[in-house]
């Protein structure tokens, strides 16, 4: 058991009495009470647990919390940066009514946000490639594509 320091959404958080092998996912959900990041498969197969580490999309179910020490973690709760209320992708998701059950959408959004950071104007093929690791059991893929394009058109990388 250890006490670890992690930076989450810009805040320095201390997690005490935790096994350093605990996946970041459960550290966020159980120890920090941040439940926006979801558990789907536990093996990095579905992408529901996607968060950013230093701006790069990672699967938090397969990343030990010890690997996040000293790194900057962003979760769905902190996706909207700076003064804005919502990230352009979040706005696009609402406008296009992307969610069905909505369970996978935090992971989809985090993955899409990382995509737009590296590729502000992605093509359909770029989106398909980047999003192929994120499952949606309800089948909202068509609307996810549309919402990413829509956010990109409005400068969604910001």
């Amino acid at each position: 058991m250890a006490t670890l320091q992690v930076t989450v959404n810009g805040s320095d958080r201390s997690i005490s009495d935790i096994d350093p092998n605990t996946p970041l996912l459960w550290a966020l959900r159980d120890h920090l009470g941040m439940v926006g990041t979801k558990f789907g498969c536990g093996k990095g197969l579905c992408g529901a647990c996607t968060v950013h580490m230093n701006g790069v999309a990672i699967r938090s179910c397969s990343t030990p919390v010890s690997a996040a020490v000293g790194q900057s973690i962003t979760t769905i709760e902190g996706l909207a940066e700076g003064n804005s209320d919502l990230h352009p992708l979040q706005e696009a998701w609402m406008e296009e009514d992307v969610p069905q059950c909505g369970y996978c959408q935090a992971g989809q959004l985090m993955n899409a946000a990382a995509l737009l950071k590296s590729n502000p104007k992605p093509s359909d093929a770029d989106i398909d490639n980047a999003m192929a690791g994120n499952l949606c059991r309800c089948g909202t893929y068509t609307r996810i594509r549309k919402a990413i394009h829509s956010a990109a058109a409005k400068g969604g990388a910001a």
Binding site: M34, V35, G36, T37, T75, I76, E77, L79, A80, L86, Q90, W93, M94, D97, V98, P99, G102, Q105, A106, L109
Partner: peptide
């Protein structure tokens, strides 16, 4: 629920 969903509530 869209707003709550996309902000991880």
């Amino acid at each position: 629920d869209n707003r709550d969903l996309v902000t991880g509530q």
